[in-house]
Structures are given as structure tokens and as C-alpha cells.
């Protein structure tokens, strides 16, 4: 847990010439150059705050509910929600399981104090353990327990959002693209303010809005079991994944072109396959097309459909 394994893209701020090239679309993919991930934090903050304010109002709602884990993604989401709506309209929920760390609780509380939103603690140990005691017990395995926890947390967030609150999503672009999240669990939300920011970009913006360094620096973890870290589980770093995803998704480079530019062939293949296999998680459930007009197929109304 140091800046060496978790580098700030700003540490690689590129020359003016490279910037101009980046802005005009001439990007040279280079595994050693993370500068294309650079974003303008001031602009992003402004756009996200306006997004939250506008879309909450269009949904006819007044408040926001955010699951605050003590990690950097939910820290940024809750800070921006408080800025957009006013802290009095934001409810943070810290929902620990027995394996959650004391450090996470401390960090969640620090955030609540710093950004002046109300934080409530709702433990989920009892219901998770009761469920697995009655169903499959230990053979369930840690993935199923982790998924169950993620969905339990979201179920609590939705419950606490009633009647006039929206659930704020905290999945970043890296997680969404890799499918590194639980469908209808942590991936579920009314709106997601940070879903177009790669993990390394989340870190840049979080630094800008004043998320404390102890939260910025700790290794990302879903705390699905003790000692878990995202990067250990994934088998690559966010810095590596973000750069590959940026060139592949944002810049539409093919795996072949990335490999020719010096990116690791195995890693590119693995990431490309994770994106492909998880695509079902990023779209609405498929509906069997039968009638003349079908939800999702050819009944296509905007979500922000307003009335006179």
C-alpha cells in the first residue's frame, strides 16, 4: 500500500506536445505511458455534481442513499452527492459483516464528519449467517457469500431510500467493464455518478475533492473475505487494466494493435475476455420478443421522460 504500486497518473503528466496530440485524437498506446488516463478533475467534479442534482430532480426524488464502505469509490460518490444535494439530503450506510475491518468503520466515520452527511451503521452479519446456516453452510463458498453480502447491502440501501431517495451507484468504469461486481448487488443503483471513471481516474478526482490520504492510499478491496485485495484476486493491477481498457474501449484499438504496441499479450487477452463474458451484467435482462411492441426492443422511450 504505497504510491509505487498505486501510481497517480498525474505523476506522469505528459509534455504539452503529447497533450495536444491526445486532445486531437493522435494517441500512441504505450504500456509505460499512463498519461492518456489524465482527466481534468475540476471539470469532472462540476459535471458529476450537476449530473446528480439534475437526474435526482428528474426522477422526482430529493435525497440520496449511498453505501459507504470506507473505500475510495463510495467515498468519492458520497462526497459528490453531498456537494450536489447538500449533506442534509444524503444518507450514508455503513453495513459491516463480521469480517469487515475496524479501519473501514473508522474511514466511513471520518468521511461522514468531513463531508457532514449522516452515517448509519446497519450490520448484516446476522441475516447472512442465518441464511447460510440454513442453506448449504460452509459449502456455499466465499463467492456466494460475497454476492449475498453485496445484494443484502443493496437491499438495505433500497429500503432506506424509500420514499423520496435515490440509491447512488459506486461502481467505477474498470469494475463495470471487467464485470468485477455483483449483478443486482453493488452494481445496482438508481444513478451512478462515477461509472465513467476508471479506478485510477477515481483516485485523481478523489484527491481533488479532498478524500483523506489514508483512504486514497489503501489497497482497494471488496472485503468479501479477510485480507482480500482486488488486485490480488484479479491477478493484475488497476493501473495495468485501466490503460488497456482505455485504449481498447475509449480509443477503439483492437487487441492485435495493443499487442503490437507492446502490451502483454496474455493480459490483453484476459481483459478482453473478462469484458466479453461479463457483458450480460451491463445490460437489462433479455426479454423474449413476442408481440408487436416490446419493452427494451422497440418500445424505446427515454428514462427522463417528463410530464407537462
Amino acid at each position: 500500500m504505497c504510491f509505487a504500486v498505486w501510481p497517480l497518473a498525474s505523476a506522469f503528466r505528459s509534455s504539452a506536445v503529447t497533450n495536444t496530440l491526445a486532445r486531437t485524437g493522435v494517441i500512441r498506446p504505450d504500456p509505460k505511458d499512463p498519461s492518456p488516463l489524465r482527466i481534468d478533475e475540476v471539470l469532472v467534479r462540476k459535471m458529476v455534481v450537476l449530473f446528480i442534482r439534475d437526474e435526482v430532480a428528474k426522477a422526482g426524488l430529493k435525497r440520496a442513499v449511498v453505501g459507504v464502505s470506507g473505500g475510495i469509490d463510495s467515498a468519492l460518490a458520497v462526497a459528490l452527492a453531498a456537494e450536489a444535494l447538500g449533506p442534509e439530503r444524503v444518507l450514508g450506510l455503513f453495513t459491516p459483516y463480521r469480517t469487515s475491518s475496524e479501519e473501514s468503520r473508522r474511514h466511513a466515520r471520518e468521511l461522514a464528519k468531513m463531508f457532514r452527511f449522516r452515517l448509519e451503521e446497519v450490520p448484516i452479519t446476522k441475516q447472512i449467517d442465518a441464511y447460510f446456516a440454513d442453506n448449504d453452510g460452509d459449502v456455499a463458498g466465499r463467492i456466494r457469500v460475497g454476492n449475498k453480502m453485496a445484494r443484502e447491502r443493496k437491499s438495505i440501501e433500497y429500503d432506506r431510500s424509500w420514499p423520496d431517495g435515490i440509491v447512488i451507484g459506486t461502481s467505477n468504469k474498470t469494475e463495470l467493464l471487467l464485470g468485477y461486481g455483483t449483478q443486482f448487488g453493488d452494481m445496482a443503483a438508481g444513478i451512478n455518478p462515477i461509472g465513467d471513471l476508471y479506478k485510477t481516474q477515481v483516485r485523481e478526482v478523489a484527491l481533488h475533492v479532498g478524500i483523506p490520504p489514508q483512504i486514497l492510499r489503501k489497497p482497494p478491496t471488496a472485503e468479501l473475505w479477510e485480507g482480500q485485495t482486488d488486485e490480488d484476486e484479479l491477478g493484475f493491477t488497476y493501473a495495468e487494466a485501466d490503460l488497456i481498457l482505455y485504449h481498447m474501449v475509449d480509443r477503439r484499438l483492437s487487441p492485435r494493435e495493443l499487442i503490437a504496441s507492446g502490451f502483454d499479450e496474455k493480459l490483453v487477452g484476459k481483459i478482453r475476455e473478462m469484458v466479453r463474458r461479463s457483458h450480460y451484467k451491463r445490460v437489462m435482462p433479455l426479454i423474449a420478443k413476442l408481440s408487436l411492441r416490446t419493452v427494451g426492443h422497440d418500445f424505446l422511450y427515454p428514462r427522463d421522460w417528463e410530464s407537462d
Binding site: R13, N19, A22, R23, R38, I39, D40, V42, L43, V44
Partner: peptide
């Protein structure tokens, strides 16, 4: 629609 929040202080579309 505004998009392209690359470094440099302005949106790609605005430029």
C-alpha cells in the same frame, strides 16, 4: 452533448 474530459481544462466537444 459534452464529452471528452481529457486533461487540459476544457471539453473535447467545446474545443
Amino acid at each position: 452533448p459534452g464529452r471528452g474530459v481529457a486533461e487540459g481544462g476544457d471539453l473535447g466537444t467545446a474545443e
